[in-house]
Amino acid sequence: MKSTTPLLLETRSLHFRFGQRPILHDVNLQVEPGSLYGFLGPNGAGKSTTMRLLLGLLRPASGSVHLFGHDLARHRVALLDRVGALIENPSLYDHLSGRENVEATRRLRGVAASRTAEVLELVGLTDNAHRPAKEYSLGMRQRLGLAIALLSDPDLLLLDEPTNGLDPNGIIEMRELLQRLCKQHGKTIVVSSHLISEIEKMATHVGVIQQGRLVFQGSLPDLRRLQTGRARLVVETQDAESCRNLLPRLLAGATVAAPGTLWLPWLSQEHTAALAVELVAAEQPLYGLRLEQPTLEDTFLHLTETRVAAV
């Protein structure tokens, strides 16, 4: 992370526990202004807990949360004035209509009355605004929750699994909306998700949390670079075992994946070329030699399976 950029959101050595059970351990989130930060982790890794800490709903055991350069614990109300949030399932009053649900929060925040219609329009709920929220589908509820989060035109949006319950079309719409808010309106957005595939299509930065620890944080290109280091060379031959015995130096890191297949970490183009020459020289048939790039999904799984400290 470039430490010269002023951070819009920052947690410093954040710890949290429920009773005696530790939930978060030394989490240092760093979110730059104008970024779309994907906060990734499997279910139960501590995403929602972190989101709640960012809003002052939970009090950290130690460490602090800083928004816009100010300590949240000391300026909570003033800071929350600039934050819109959607935590887990949207908090909707089923006995009220969609419009009244927006109106309830609008009154609470003291936002101009015209905003109610604007945000309903923005999420495409104008035609259904008169219907009671209990008749809304899961996707409509999610969009209404987003409308409420957008009411005050906040500089920072905290969205916890916003695509939950959306159909593929809804997910694409949500993604486009978030990207538009980020790129055109300069909003800073933190989106949590357990799906890398969803985050990689929109995020500029990524943080990966596993068992309450931040195991990766950086830009999306950083994450991609991390995976090139994990590229794999696959050798298809007649007898993998004897190949390894014949070329102990070149195939030092190789594992026998199948009787005729060798896997080895990709080192360099020269190494690959030398391997091909030597295999042929050793009179081993070379059926295939290819480079396998792990997908971002593999990288994510790798990060969240083993607890490596990447940062």
């Binding site: 809003l55 909570r76 109300v77 934050v83 887990e88 399932n89 908090s91 009053y93 609470l108 925040r109």
Partner: peptide, 18 residues
């Protein structure tokens, strides 16, 4: 219960009111 039923406490306390 109006707030509890709507799981709205988390929403309410995340608004800029004390």
């Amino acid at each position: 219960n109006i707030e509890t039923k709507a799981t709205a406490w988390k929403h309410l306390y995340a608004q800029p009111v004390g």
